[in-house]
Design a protein around this nucleic acid. Structure first.
Lengths: 233, 233
DNA sequence: ATCATAAACTGACAAAAATCATATTTTTGA
DNA sequence: TCAAAAATATGATTTTTGTCAGTTTATGAT
């Protein structure tokens, strides 16, 4: 990771998108002094499951994946994090080892904020703590939904859901193709299935004319049909 | 639900087991004035997915299940809550509708604490908020593990894990049988599979001599083997 | 005790998913 | 530009899981 040092937290727009918006000018200044801005190249690992994190990573730009190894040697992507999200919050707050690995899916620009700064803010600023709490509560809700989906939806349903999610969260390019171009393996790890089955299911969607495939690029043609697939219709 | 009114929060031992331990004597007194102690019979629903909760339920005694319906009409048990746990925290904090349903698996004694009391404590007592945050962070970690397990472990692996979890969390009776006697359907909903497959898999474990079955009563005979099954060996 | 009902179980089969082997295409970098 | 490597794709097969239909067993109310 390359290290830069330029932007000040006080004027950073990214903070509007996360718990940092609850911080005072003084707190932001203090963080700004201690933080390091880093450039992370596509494919680079930001932190690994089991590591002790020395701070959190506030994402200024670029999409990353948060994943966890299963005992069976498969990698499950738990969530995709867009700019604005803060990586490593949970582990830093609880002082536990990281539960997930974070990997850049694009070139990223992140600010590393040392653990001590976060702890100071938690200790002194209760609206920051409340913001963290709300954030965590929301993640928990999503996680519960994911458990149910994994347990009871078919790969076909989950893939339709993932495609709609990618469209919803990261949008499309000028030609209407999904902006985020994942590898087949990454999509499989997001859906929670084997790569082969994922490829076949994508091919089925293509044959059914609900999507168009052009190499890594995927375009959703008939979202209504995809929604119906999610519902099991 | 029958309503009682007796025990004072200040002297209640249950609070040692949850976030309420961070509260001051005055806060506990205030809660004590507003709370209602209720007896909930086995099988009764405490709250349903989608409801707006008017407060949280502090469990004085009895085990409950927290479950969520999948689109396919199956009920997934997300967690089992023992005494000491507080039900409905997430929904009350975020003022969202309940994400899960809570049902008594045994006769229960719970204290209902109105939302306003919780909000007051969150607003005024930052160590309470921090305790909630830690609690939520822990739940999130467990949820992430559950996602991976659902996605990549077989029913055989997950059942072994559930049995060991029931042993670990709720213990056994004098004869060494699991204390918590769930219906086959509840075990299936915990594992995330169909009842028939669950019954068959239990029968396989029995045949392999890792468990003994006597009606609803289940005894773990060879935990080592069960651990190996979890690991896929 | 008896009946009605629900829960537990079994067998046969169908569907979904994983696995293994191999072919083809795309990407990469020397 | 070309060869090697990686990613994508396909076929054949096995394993796992789900479903349906029906039987047996337990349970509770009268």
């Amino acid at each position: 990771m390359k290290i830069e040092k330029r932007i000040k937290c006080e004027g950073c727009i990214i903070k509007q998108m996360n718990s940092f918006k609850a911080l005072s000018k003084e707190e932001l200044k203090s963080i700004s002094d201690k933080k390091e801005t880093r450039i992370i190249k596509k494919g680079e690992v930001i932190f690994k499951e089991g590591e002790r994190l020395k701070g959190v990573f506030c994402v200024r730009d670029g999409i990353s994946k948060l994943s966890k190894m299963s005992g069976n040697g498969r990698d499950q992507i738990i969530k995709l994090a867009n700019k604005g999200e803060v990586l490593g919050q949970r582990s830093v707050i609880t002082s536990e080892r990281a539960n997930l690995s974070a990997t850049a899916l694009e070139d990223m620009s992140v600010c590393f904020v040392p653990k001590a700064e976060i702890e100071k803010c938690v200790a002194e600023n209760s609206s920051f703590t409340k913001a963290l709490l709300n954030n965590m509560a929301n993640e928990l809700k999503l996680a519960d939904v994911a458990i149910v989906n994994m347990a009871h939806k078919t790969v076909r349903q989950r893939l339709a859901e993932v495609l709609l999610y990618l469209d919803e969260s990261f949008g499309t390019d000028q030609d209407g193709y999904l902006y985020l171009q994942l590898s087949r393996t990454d999509i499989a790890n997001l859906v929670g299935t084997a790569t082969e089955l994922l490829i076949r299911t994508l091919a089925v969607f293509k044959k059914e004319n609900s999507i168009v495939i052009d190499g890594k690029r995927i375009k959703l043609i008939d979202k209504k049909v995809l929604y119906n697939i999610v519902e099991g219709l």
